[in-house]
């Protein structure tokens, strides 16, 4: 067992798979020599050579299209889009070409591709580096969406993503890359895509979150504990497929829930989670399910991002609201 931060855990997953399967390749902007702007792929080109880990010209659509063409020929590309805002340049290749390959060919071809991108707020980054664009992806049929919240999950989910025969949009929260270290097993293990994780047990209210917001929820839960409220926290880990069964099981116990997301409030993942709770667990609810989310504005410049992002205090307030309903 080694101690790794999330960035090292993701790198370790890619190293394991590069070693195991010669069809696995990594490419993108600046991923080779220096290992990417965040050093997630650091050392991999040195270890596996330029044929396996390489820099491309600066063109995101081509990075996506290259991955699609290679996938058709049986390779398993890990394509890095340097910052989340740059996926807009690659949306056709990611969300149409890769996501529809299996359907368009009636199963003859597929896109065994991992599209990696850093995202998420709180690090005072430049404009369009920090948006939470997972909502675009979950509206797109044919692509899985994975967001880890800790090193152990990140490695296990990344190995699953690389081995998946369908495209996976793997979003890595910037604020979690170096936030903390945790035990990560050596070698290979997988965390199943589509299974949520109960990270804290409780009986009074369920807090559903993913990515950085899991940690914000943990802080809120500690505060609620002081008030005698026992919060259960579910880390979704994957948004497509969404593990509604774990959510429903928790609500059967707590009868109350809130959903926390960093993304803008309207029509996002939280809205979908609430819709599915309505479909499957409405008779277990004692109160409406509330959202804690960013406002429906563009993601702000760095000066006010700390106010813009959901805080433990806002989660606590929402929890009190559903409990006192």
């Amino acid at each position: 067992m080694a101690q790794m931060n999330m960035l090292e855990a993701i790198r370790d997953a890619m190293r394991v798979e590069l070693k195991r399967d010669s069809n696995v390749l990594i490419f993108g902007e600046d991923v080779g020599k220096v290992g990417g702007v965040f050093r997630v792929t650091e050392g991999l080109q040195e270890e596996f050579g330029e044929e396996r880990v390489f820099d491309t010209p600066l063109a995101e659509s081509a990075i996506g299209g290259l991955a699609v063409g290679m996938g058709v020929q049986g390779l398993r590309p890990i394509a890095e889009i340097q910052f989340v805002g740059f996926i807009y340049e690659a949306l056709d290749q990611m969300f149409i070409q890769a996501a529809r390959m299996r359907y368009r060919s009636g199963g003859r071809y597929n896109s065994p591709i991992v599209f990696r991108t850093p995202f998420g707020g709180g690090v005072k980054a430049a404009e369009l580096h920090t948006d939470s664009l997972e909502g675009l992806a979950v509206q797109t049929p044919g692509i899985k969406v994975v967001i880890p919240s800790n090193p152990y999950d990140a490695k296990g989910l990344m190995i699953s993503a690389i081995r998946d025969n369908d495209p996976v949009f793997f979003m890595e929260h910037l604020n979690l890359y170096r936030a903390f270290k945790a035990d990560v097993p050596e070698g290979e293990y997988t965390v199943e895509i589509g299974k949520a994780n109960v990270v804290r047990e409780g009986s009074d209210v369920t807090i559903i979150a993913y990515g950085m917001m899991v940690h914000t929820a943990v802080k809120a839960a500690a505060e609620l504990e002081k008030q005698g409220i026992k919060a259960e926290i579910i880390d979704l880990r994957s948004l497509v497929p969404l593990d509604i069964d774990t959510i429903v099981a928790s609500i059967q116990k707590t009868n109350r829930a809130i959903v926390v997301q960093e993304a803008q409030k309207t029509s996002g993942v939280a809205a979908e989670v609430i819709a599915q709770i309505n479909e499957k667990a409405i008779l277990h609810l004692e109160a409406p399910v509330l959202r804690v989310a960013g406002p429906d504005t563009v993601y702000p410049f760095a000066q006010i991002e700390d106010q813009w992002l959901p805080t433990p205090a806002r989660i606590v307030a929402a929890a009190q609201k559903v409990i006192n309903f």
């Binding site: 390749l25 299209g65 058709v72 060919s105």
Partner: peptide, 25 residues
């Protein structure tokens, strides 16, 4: 072959990726 492409130009990148796969293999 791939299926006919509707998005104008998307297939240009697929051929580029296919060619890269041929070269790598």
């Amino acid at each position: 072959v791939l299926m006919p492409q509707i998005i104008i130009g998307a297939q240009i990148l697929h051929a580029t990726g296919v060619a890269m796969a041929f070269k790598k293999k």
